[in-house]
């Protein structure tokens, strides 16, 4: 179990100052500023945004967001990952375009209500637990504990979330680590990520570091030399097991944006 409570809290509290704007030739629309939690999802803040822009939209309009009017922002990728992938090279606030029509159905999936994002979130947790503990911990939990994880995230309640999540972060007893590390590695191509079976220990039983991971992920033509998550570059000697316990998003996955040579 992760004892680095301060790190966990720091990760949880990460926020991105964001400016929501609407491009309109006909009317002037006032921008909307919001501090977005990195660990949350656009689906969970959409109501606030809808409320602000209410007077400009018809009832049946479906809101969606893009960065720079070009990259649609996915509703089910954590906000911090969206920012690290799109906006992190530009000065803050992060500027997001709000759209009320022409929903790009070919590249964005609709998350029409909180139930859908909740179900998606729970499936991420189940997948992560399957990788870490063969799914044994999630399946032993009660329904209300599942609910508590999602409500903790939705209502920004660190203690409520971690009271349950710490059980998902326990090591397998004899091994003192997870079976595999739930991990998504984003490449330079926006959104496409690769997921592989990564063991936290080397064949000799030593704890693997980020450096070992990057070596595993590199190919002769593409060499990964670093990784960023929660807006910081991760030290190369950080152990994968520790990273998984402390720097995973609430969905229990490590989301790493790879830096290539």
């Amino acid at each position: 179990m992760a004892n680095d409570r301060e790190v966990l809290k720091e990760v949880w509290d990460g926020k991105i100052p964001t400016k929501f704007i609407v491009d309109s030739e006909d009317i002037e629309v006032e921008a909307y500023f919001l501090l977005l939690p990195r660990v949350s999802y656009l689906s969970l803040v959409i109501e606030k945004i809808r409320k602000h822009f209410q007077r400009y939209i018809e009832k049946e309009d479906e809101i969606w967001f893009s960065y720079n009017n070009s990259i649609p922002l996915k509703f089910h990728i954590p906000i911090g990952v969206l920012y690290d992938l799109t906006g992190s090279e530009h000065p803050l606030p992060w500027q997001i375009n709000v759209h009320f029509n022409k929903f790009p159905e070919d590249c964005l999936f609709k998350f029409p209500n909180k139930d859908v994002i909740e179900s998606f979130f729970m499936n991420c947790l189940k997948e992560a637990d399957f990788l870490k503990h063969k799914g044994q911990i999630v399946s032993q939990m009660q329904k209300k504990e599942h609910k508590q994880l999602f409500l903790g995230l939705q209502n920004d309640k660190f203690d409520q979330f971690w009271a349950v999540n710490r059980r998902l972060m326990e090591s397998i007893e004899q091994e003192n680590c997870f079976k595999y590390i739930p991990l998504r590695c984003y490449t330079d191509d926006c959104y496409s990520y690769s997921q592989k079976l990564i063991c936290p220990l080397s064949e000799k039983g030593q704890r693997k570091t980020l450096k070992d991971l990057l070596k595993e992920l590199s190919t002769p033509t593409l060499e990964a030399i670093g990784a960023k998550t929660h807006g910081v570059e991760v030290p190369l000697d950080a152990e994968l097991q520790w990273l998984s316990e402390t720097l995973s998003y609430p969905d229990n996955f490590l989301h790493l944006c790879l830096i290539y040579k």
Binding site: K74, H76, F109, S119, F120, N123, C124, K126, E127, F130, G135, Y191
Partner: peptide, 11 residues
């Protein structure tokens, strides 16, 4: 579903 356990994301 995968492994009769979880539903992967549509994308």
């Amino acid at each position: 579903y995968i492994n009769q356990t979880f539903a992967p994301s549509p994308d």
